[in-house]
C-alpha cells in the first residue's frame, strides 16, 4: 500500500506518512497557517499528482503558491470556482479547469472526475508520467465556502462522494474548514466523513497543530510553522 509522506517527521518516521485512501479535515481558525499547512500536505512529491479545488483563491494564486514550494507544475491541477464569474469565456485546459461558482457542485464533480481520469490515462503532465497507479493528493480550499452556499445535508452527501472517490483511487484528501464560523453539529457531521482531523489553533500569535486519527501518532498540541512549503514542528 502506498504511503503519502507528509513532510512532518513525527508522522513520516513512525508511520510512513498518510495511508493511501484516507481523508483529513484541516480544522482551523481564520488567519492561521492552515492554508499553508494544507497546501504543503498536498504538495506532490516526485511521481505524485495533486488536485486543488479552490473556492477562495484564483487558479493563478494557487499556482503561485505551489511555485513557491518548488513543485513541478505539470503534476498539479486546479479547479477554480472563482475566475469564471468575471471571465465567463475562459476555457479549460488539462490542468486548469473552471466552474461557474462554488455553488456548482455538478461542475465541481465533473471536473474532479475529469482530472482524475486524465491522470490515470497518463494524459495529465505533458507527456511526462509519474508513478502508476498514480498517487493523487487532493485539497479542498475550502469546505467553509462550499458550506456558505449549500445546505449541510446536501454538502454532506457531496463530500461523501468526493471522499469516497479519494478512497477508491487510493489518494489522500485534505479539506479545510474554518472552525469558528460553524456550529458543533456541522463540524461533527463533516468529521464523520474523515479518517482523521488535523486541528490548528493560535495562541499568542503562535500556530499549534495536533493530529487526531492516525494510529500511534500522539495527538498533543505542537508548535509549527510552514517554510517554503515545508512544515516545521517545534519552536
Amino acid at each position: 500500500m502506498y504511503n503519502f509522506k507528509s513532510g512532518i517527521v513525527q508522522i513520516d518516521q513512525g508511520f510512513g506518512g498518510f495511508e493511501a485512501g484516507t481523508n483529513f479535515l484541516v480544522l482551523a481558525p481564520p488567519m492561521s497557517l492552515a492554508e499553508d499547512l494544507a497546501y504543503s500536505l498536498t504538495k506532490p512529491l516526485p511521481g505524485e499528482y495533486a488536485i486543488v479545488l479552490s473556492t477562495n483563491d484564483r487558479a493563478a494564486e494557487v499556482i503561485d503558491a505551489f511555485k513557491v514550494m518548488e513543485v513541478d507544475k505539470r503534476y498539479v491541477g486546479t479547479i477554480d470556482a472563482i475566475t469564471k464569474s468575471s471571465t465567463p469565456g475562459i476555457a479549460d485546459t488539462t490542468r486548469l479547469m473552471f466552474v461557474a461558482s462554488p455553488t456548482d457542485l455538478t461542475g465541481i464533480g465533473i471536473k474532479f472526475s475529469k482530472m482524475v481520469e486524465l491522470i490515470f490515462d497518463g494524459d495529465f503532465s505533458d507527456g511526462e508520467s509519474g508513478l502508476f497507479p498514480p498517487p493523487v493528493r487532493f485539497c479542498v480550499n475550502s469546505v467553509s465556502t462550499l458550506l456558505m452556499y449549500r445546505k449541510l445535508e446536501v454538502l454532506y452527501q457531496f463530500l461523501h462522494v468526493l471522499t469516497s472517490k479519494v478512497k477508491k483511487i487510493d489518494g489522500v484528501g485534505f479539506y479545510l474548514l474554518n472552525n469558528e464560523s460553524f456550529d458543533e453539529k456541522t463540524i461533527s457531521l463533516v468529521k464523520q466523513l474523515m479518517t482523521g482531523v488535523i486541528e490548528v489553533k493560535i495562541e499568542q500569535s503562535t500556530n499549534y497543530l495536533r493530529i487526531m486519527g492516525i494510529k500511534g501518532v500522539p495527538s498533543k498540541w505542537q508548535k509549527f510553522s510552514v517554510q517554503k512549503g515545508q512544515v516545521v514542528i517545534g519552536p
Partner: peptide, 14 residues
C-alpha cells in the same frame, strides 16, 4: 439558478 446566462452560453457553446 447556479450560474449566469452569460457563463452558461459560453460553456454550452464550448
Amino acid at each position: 439558478p447556479h450560474t449566469t446566462f452569460d457563463i452558461f452560453k459560453h460553456d454550452a457553446a464550448m
